[in-house]
Design a protein around this nucleic acid. Structure first.
Lengths: 349, 349
DNA sequence: TTGTAGGCGTTATCAT
DNA sequence: ATGATAACGCCTACAA
């Protein structure tokens, strides 16, 4: 393996000079520069990130920790698109700042070790909801700057970034109520998911505000997956009977599953039952009927997280901050709106 | 910042012992272990990855370099889903081996520097097609193990992983010919994309084999994007006139755009014109008509790349290898098949 | 403009 | 079972 010493020797200069040239710090003649760069090229030398990181105390890497939601084996994944978008956003913000992004999925199995190993390699960590136990989160938070994404329970202790789920769900529910629907069900995601909780809260708020009855919990848990949504829809159909007029699904994937269940049950969307989702994944507009949903700026969630993180790394004594990004109801056909109707309700909040 | 020295001091042992405990290397009493682990917990100490990497000559990180295909500003991205899946696959394989994944998008602007910086931080690199110039690729390839993904032009010099684009496109074309279509057009991706080239080759092969005329290049370039596909479709409609019976699009996103263009032109799919895509993104099955396409195992592409990479890192003197993953035609409705027809043609090759 | 030398936080070797 | 101590490859005062 080639090192700075060899480059220095072959160029007839000291390692200090090589270092200066590489970092473009100035303090060397043009001729020297040429010579050094030439040997670097010949040797194909790349400075060791580890050595650099050791002396500079900065790896130039930010980490993103997300939950590994692929169940054992072949089963479908919970929300691939969501995490992917977060990662893309993070990558973008990091690159803009000259940093790289390290990603790691924490399954409960390997989770702990991996998380600590990652923590040692990065300058800071963006931690998605449900990727770490509370204990591990606080523990890791003591050794490296952490921004928590979408888990507002950790909001007091860390910088926090999230979408306005509550208000998005509430606006959407209001829209359905305006349609004249009274019997409305809510199918949530997995029990532990903060996103799901917030969306249900928004739903319940709007229902209560309209004087309609709501339970204290979602009608069913669809696990945020397509098949989960399908099963949950069937269950809810059984429970609530034929008076049911509309169903809010906690995300778009479950809505896709729900529409399949309805098709099997020979129920028409939206004529017999209106269906809505959450996220606005790209498939949503291609479904028939096209899916009414709530768009959340997932990519920006990732970007903001890294930005906050970078700022905290630069100045660890900052007050902890929370950033809540707005959501937006996207009206299509599955809620019962017709072609003539406005394509989209205004933003809110 | 807390270091191993402090942990050692507070535990009343030497740094060597702390190190042994952390790496679980044995050679310490249970009591010592307890004591060290306790202080580690109190201090919230995490060993420095840089220091470890420096001495072990292994960062425990593999890098993935992909092209930044977001055009300047707001424009749509070329193939987000493809890259995302690759990354997921890479993450999975790396985690299985106890490594982490570093990702970086190389835009032509920041590209060079970023790539070299990344190369210094990782044990090896998976490089997607079109993320690096040929020169940079060879240069970087000299300082760190490289696996090239989907760019078969670099196949002789590096380990290579790709999908069998040619054969997938050829099978699909054959299927269209079996439908009885004679006038078939091909809309490709951006000029530089190896995937696009290979798919066109497969198309041309099948056409020629059936005694049908083909040009030496795709009928149009849709840039792999939805709007690009829409525009290209309009153009081809103008060029080829009303006798055109089928169009192969180089990927699913362009096919979505093409279907929009056809709708505007009051042409019915597949009655007036049959449409096919490539990739089998999740939207494909939700389109109306559902899209006939070719599935390529994108996730596995990422997994295989990392696996090959890790093997090469373990033994740099291995012969260079190529892995070609099979593709599979997925028959739905947009090609003209009816409900009764078999849902899927057999795999091939 | 250039060189010398100490130190960054770990691990590994060699003693004890 | 445990401790000194010398690397690891680079950067950065400090000198010259």
């Amino acid at each position: 393996m080639v090192t700075i010493y060899e480059v220095a020797r072959l160029s007839g200069v000291s390692t200090a000079t090589v270092s200066r040239v590489m970092r473009d710090g100035g303090g060397f003649s043009v001729a020297t520069r040429e010579r050094v760069l030439a040997t670097v090229g010949e040797l194909g030398w790349v400075p060791s990130g580890s050595a650099r990181g050791l002396v500079s105390r900065r790896s130039g890497i930010v980490g993103v920790l997300f939950p590994d939601l692929a169940k054992s084996g072949e089963a479908e994944e919970e929300s691939p698109l969501y995490v992917d978008q977060i990662i893309r956003g993070a990558e973008r913000a990091a690159t803009a700042a000259g940093d790289a992004v390290l990603i790691a999925a924490t399954s409960s199995a390997s989770g702990r070790d991996l998380a600590y190993s990652v923590a040692g390699k990065v300058d800071g960590l963006v931690v998605l909801a449900r990727s770490l136990s509370e204990d591990d989160l606080t523990s890791i938070g003591r050794s490296v700057p952490v921004v928590v994404l979408a888990d507002d329970s950790a909001r007091h202790a860390f910088d926090f970034v999230g979408a306005d789920n509550r208000s998005g769900a509430s606006s959407l529910t209001k829209h359905l109520i305006d349609h004249g629907y009274r019997e409305i069900a809510f199918i949530g995601g997995p029990a532990g998911a903060p996103d799901s909780v917030d969306r249900f809260t928004g739903f319940a708020e709007a229902m209560t505000a309209a004087g309609l009855a709501v339970g204290s919990a979602p009608d069913a848990d669809g696990g945020f997956t397509e098949t989960g949504g399908e099963r949950a829809m069937q269950a809810v159909l059984g429970q609530r009977g034929p008076s049911l007029r509309a169903v809010l699904l906690g995300n778009d994937q479950m809505a896709i599953g729900a529409m399949a269940a309805l098709r099997s049950a020979r129920l028409r969307v939206p004529t017999d039952i209106a269906i809505t989702g959450f996220d606005d994944i790209s498939s949503a507009q291609h479904l028939r009927p096209a899916l009414t949903t709530v768009r959340q700026p997932i990519r920006e969630l990732g970007e903001q997280s890294v930005r906050l993180l970078l700022e905290r790394i630069a100045d660890p004594r900052l007050d902890t901050r929370s950033v809540i990004l707005p959501t937006e109801v996207v009206v299509r056909r599955s809620c019962g709106c017709r072609k003539g109707a406005p394509a989209r309700s205004g933003g809110h909040r």
